[in-house]
């Protein structure tokens, strides 16, 4: 049985014009980049489809063709190396949630993945899709920034790498250029003494867009001195946001030397929330403050055990 959709020869004639039958299944990243380079705006890059097919259903997008990344094996891999963890863009939330390696090395990311959507969504939705969709409330984004992830973009002009913290520029807007694909997420392997916490607040426990979320990652040096601390929030600004003032205030101190209320105030002051159907700006400022206090307390009291929490509100 020859696959009608795959194969370079079958692809070419469909790519131009308004051919609504266009469905492309490249089997390598190079082929995908090539196809994307030839195509216009109407060719949609399809990962898990859990956002894109909702947009299609609501007629928010015009589709002239699909570039389905589902047959590119390297995009499905999680590789744990000595210095970094490499996660292919098509790795699903369910893979992240269940991977022993991810749970061990990047527990805040695993905890966030475990709370996305529902089993049905987690089985299809991908880390790459979550990143590229760039919703301010995207659940994996704050953890990725907190872990200093680097995003690898591939285009016809080659490979470029950009820190996750510099990737997002607005709601559903990123620095990615037309013709580029996200191939991998590269995360420096956290040193021992790295502890963290994930908290997502939503109206339900499942299938909920976060009203606000927090990924806190703290790296403790010998003697308990904070070598690095990243407090990153979701759904509090046009992009996922690190409160850098926390790093400036807390770096070099020990957790017990910090006035958590004062650190919490930095969060309340540092975010740029809006009123929307999931909460008001004022609510988000209050909750941001309290979440950071709570997260610091939990990190301190558990000495590093990861807490994935979801408050009822």
């Amino acid at each position: 049985m020859k696959r009608k959709l795959a194969g370079k020869q079958g692809n070419r004639p469909l790519i131009s014009g308004r051919d609504s039958n266009g469905y492309f299944l490249p089997e390598s990243l190079a082929e995908a980049v090539n196809l994307l380079g030839q195509a216009g705006e109407g060719l949609k890059v399809l990962a898990g489809g859990t956002d894109l097919l909702v947009d299609l259903y609501e007629r928010l997008i015009e589709v002239e063709g699909w570039l389905d990344l589902g047959l590119i094996p390297e995009l499905r891999e999680i590789k744990v190396r000595a210095e970094q963890i490499e996660i292919g863009a098509m790795v699903t939330h369910a893979q992240l949630e269940k991977s022993e390696n991810i749970k061990k090395t990047l527990p805040v990311l695993a905890a966030a993945a475990a709370e996305i959507g529902s089993p049905q969504i987690r089985n299809r939705g991908t880390i790459g899709g979550n990143v590229v969709t760039a919703s301010p409330a995207g659940d994996l984004l704050a953890p990725l920034i907190a872990y200093n992830a680097v995003l690898e973009l591939v285009g016809k002009d080659g490979v470029s790498r950009v820190p996750a913290g510099d990737f997002f520029c607005g709601p559903k807007q990123t620095i990615m250029k037309r013709g580029q694909l996200l191939s991998r997420v590269l995360i420096p392997r956290p040193s021992s003494g790295t502890i963290g916490c994930w908290i997502k607040i939503g109206k339900r426990k499942a299938l909920v867009i976060a009203s606000i979320s927090l990924a806190l990652v703290v790296r403790l040096a010998k003697g308990g001195v904070i070598a690095d601390i990243r407090a990153c929030f979701g759904a509090v600004a046009p992009t996922p946001l690190e409160i850098k003032a926390v790093r400036r205030l807390a770096g070099g101190k020990r957790l017990e030397q910090l006035d958590f209320s004062q650190v919490g105030e930095l969060a309340a002051a540092g975010i740029a929330p809006i009123d929307d159907l999931r909460g008001t700006a004022a609510y988000r400022r209050n909750v941001a403050r309290e979440l950071l206090i709570q997260a610091l307390e939990k990190v301190q009291s558990t000495g590093g055990e990861i807490i994935a929490d979801q408050a009822d509100c």
Binding site: G49, L53, I121
Partner: peptide, 14 residues
């Protein structure tokens, strides 16, 4: 795997 069949295109089930 459990999936929502409204969020899959037919060719994805090839």
């Amino acid at each position: 795997q459990l999936v929502a069949s409204c969020l899959l295109l037919a060719p994805q089930a090839d």
